[in-house]
Design a protein around this nucleic acid. Structure first.
Length: 295
DNA sequence: ACATAGACCTGTTGGC
DNA sequence: TGCCAACAGGTCTATG
């Protein structure tokens, strides 16, 4: 499911429900996702107050009191949904009735409150995972150490990209999928940003840096389009193709704004371009692009 | 340092 | 209708 905009949409949906509430129970309905759940996961989070919902790259961060943070990665098909006002079948047992659970509901956070909400993690493919770490050790955690800058913040710039990529011979598509270059981009938004910037996905990133190490105009445009497409997608609640839903069950709608992704053999949407969208494979992933106007 | 292929999983889609 | 191959918003490992 999720690239940065989808995870951010999930964070924004969960925050008003989870922040300030206490986890009264965490029900794990199997022992693992992609990896095993952490040791004593349920016992460690139960009873603790949720102090804040955060995000870094494609990781959702559930900050708890007592210096603990739950890390959740949604893999390809993970989603969260909220059930509110569901009474437990047996008072005090904090269990959702079977009728409220569906296939692939793997974890349920039961929260406190007058009409206690439940936050359910569903993940058919189980490429997602959860971990529990000390909050103060987040930055030094292996998941986070090598991450590049967020495309929503000030650390990303054309100068940064030029410095980071000047010696690379990778195709620009591959470089942008590297979470160590820019954090949070995935297949869709890389294709879309390259189209908007008019850059061929196959061009070598080194060619976007001038011999003096300065970013070329193309790289300046690319950096701007990365920011723009990510910001627009967040505003749209992400892109819903197969698995992404917002926490209230509604769909994101940025998929209606795709210019190239999934549009192979359709006309290029750039005004004045008579080309047709093509598809090829790079880094084992489908790349969609217009061979006519992306050079 | 790079690319590719395969691994992890389940579900959907399209062709015959 | 059934069956089978291809494919899917990700990332990690092994192998050239």
């Amino acid at each position: 499911m999720p690239e940065l905009p989808e995870v951010e949409t999930v964070r924004r949906g969960l925050a008003p429900v989870m922040e300030g509430r206490r986890i009264v129970r965490l029900e794990l309905r199997r022992k693992d996702l992609r990896f095993a759940f952490p040791e004593n996961f349920s016992q460690q989070v139960s009873g603790r107050l949720i102090v804040g919902l955060g995000r870094r790259a494609k990781y959702l961060l559930i900050g708890l009191e007592d210096n603990l943070t739950v890390i959740s990665h949604l893999g390809m098909s993970g989603s969260f949904r909220i059930e509110t006002g569901v009474m437990s079948e047996q008072p005090g047992s904090f269990a959702l009735p079977k009728s409220k659970l569906t296939a692939h509901d793997h974890a349920v956070f039961y929260l406190d409150g007058p009409e206690p909400p439940s936050v359910i993690y569903n993940d058919p493919r189980r490429f997602g995972f959860m971990d529990l770490v000390k909050t103060e050790e987040l930055e030094s955690h292996p998941y986070f150490l090598g991450l590049g800058p967020e495309p929503t913040g000030n650390a990303l710039s054309a100068d940064y990209l030029a410095a980071r990529l000047k010696n690379s011979r990778q195709p620009v598509k591959s470089a942008l999928l590297d979470q160590g270059v820019v954090a949070g981009l995935g297949n869709i938004y890389v294709c879309e940003a390259l189209f908007r910037a008019g850059i061929s996905p196959a061009s070598l990133v080194g060619s976007l840096v001038s011999p003096t190490g300065k970013p070329t105009k193309q790289l300046v445009a690319l950096e701007a389009e990365i920011r723009a497409v990510i910001a627009e997608a967040i505003t749209a609640g992400g892109s819903s193709l197969r698995d992404h839903i917002q926490t209230d069950g509604s769909l994101g709608y940025f998929q209606h704004s795709f210019q190239v992704y999934g549009r192979q053999a359709k006309p290029c949407l750039k005004p004045g371009c008579a080309g047709e969208v093509a598809r090829m494979t790079q880094s084992g992933r489908s790349t969609f692009y217009c061979p006519t106007c992306q050079t």
